[in-house]
Design a protein around this nucleic acid. Structure first.
Lengths: 186, 186
DNA sequence: TCAGGCCCTGACCGATCGGTCAGGCATGCT
DNA sequence: AGCATGCCTGACCGATCGGTCAGGGCCTGA
């Protein structure tokens, strides 16, 4: 409990990432983080306005990249949008899988918080793009399986190297999103 | 707060299912459930030993069916096991999607509880079966995407009729689990 | 009539949560 | 020397959680 280093900000961030990865966001208390850093809970709240602000700083980069992906997709449509969405999403999930792992299964609640409302909206547009020009609900269902399954897989296989995980997930996404039945154009 | 009906047990169960579906298991307090039923929190704990016991009773049937699926798979191997696992898992997910929806994103924590340890084990065997005789990690990754994505999709598309959801998911599972590259036996 | 069991209540418990607050202790500028 | 500022502390707050407990109505069978 005797810490005087001024780089505590970064240490808290790192400790929070470590704890969130093990016990989740809701499952980790500010006390836990403080204990891991070796400072008081009040010190954590001195450096970060709130627990949510801590999470927001941890997720700032992946969210920014997601926003950029959304912009790129917005300029395309149909099959192009679908391809870019799938590749971009897998890239993003693989690249930031450590951050994704922090939120194992807490996406729904977290995205419901007003601070992440725009992420929610982007996710919906991403779903549309992945579903493609598809007819019927089949496309949307497939898109949802990919949208939910890929991040979970990334969180699960954190230790698999990028250049092994990415192509595997790209192949899965491509197969899963293939048109349901090309012979029925409708 | 003046209830004297003796069928309260069932009412509590139904109310809990409704609340869990909206705010999740952890996000729903015994107080919430009691309020919905119109009784006291103590009454809820009179009929159920604990909050966990309430959840266990809600999930008893789907878990039993999952256990039966595990037995069926155990008697097979290779491609047969993979096919049965995929079909059985999709069937189960579609049939019990209302129960699955109760646990949106809370599977990891819930399965970690000792009361659901056997479910955890079954899930791992199911993953192996879905991965098939596959070489390398590609098969396991695909299996995991399906294992995580299908239940989430079921929870999301609760209102889509069975005979529309099931074939769509079966098609997706079949495509996603297809051998990565038959030309490289390795 | 009365004993006993079922169903339920309100009051209460200890624990934990995120967050606040006044103050202490260095350091460094004036 | 004196003062301000940055960093951090322990004590504390109100809320909420799952769960316990003694007791009170009410029905039933003796």
């Amino acid at each position: 409990m005797t810490r005087t280093t001024p780089q505590t900000h970064g240490e808290i961030l790192a400790a929070a990432a470590r704890r969130f990865a093990v016990t989740g966001y809701k499952g980790t208390s500010l006390q836990d983080i403080a204990r891991e850093v070796g400072c008081s809970k009040a010190a954590v709240l001195y450096h970060f306005a709130s627990k949510e602000a801590l999470l927001a700083e941890l997720m700032a980069k992946p969210i920014e990249v997601l926003r950029q992906l959304d912009e790129r997709i917005d300029a395309l449509d149909g099959a192009d949008a679908q391809r870019v969405a799938a590749e971009g999403f897998v890239d993003l999930a693989v690249r930031f899988r450590r951050e994704i792992a922090l939120l194992r299964g807490e996406f729904p609640e977290l995205l419901a918080q007003p601070a992440f409302a725009h992420v929610q909206r982007i996710s919906e547009r991403l779903l549309d793009a992945l579903a493609g020009c598809g007819e019927g609900p089949g496309g949307r269902i497939a898109a949802f399986v990919v949208l939910a399954g890929v991040p979970e897989a990334c969180a699960e296989f954190v230790d698999v190297p990028d250049d092994e995980l990415r192509p595997a997930l790209l192949a899965i996404a491509a197969r899963a999103l293939a048109p349901l039945d090309p012979s029925t154009p409708e």
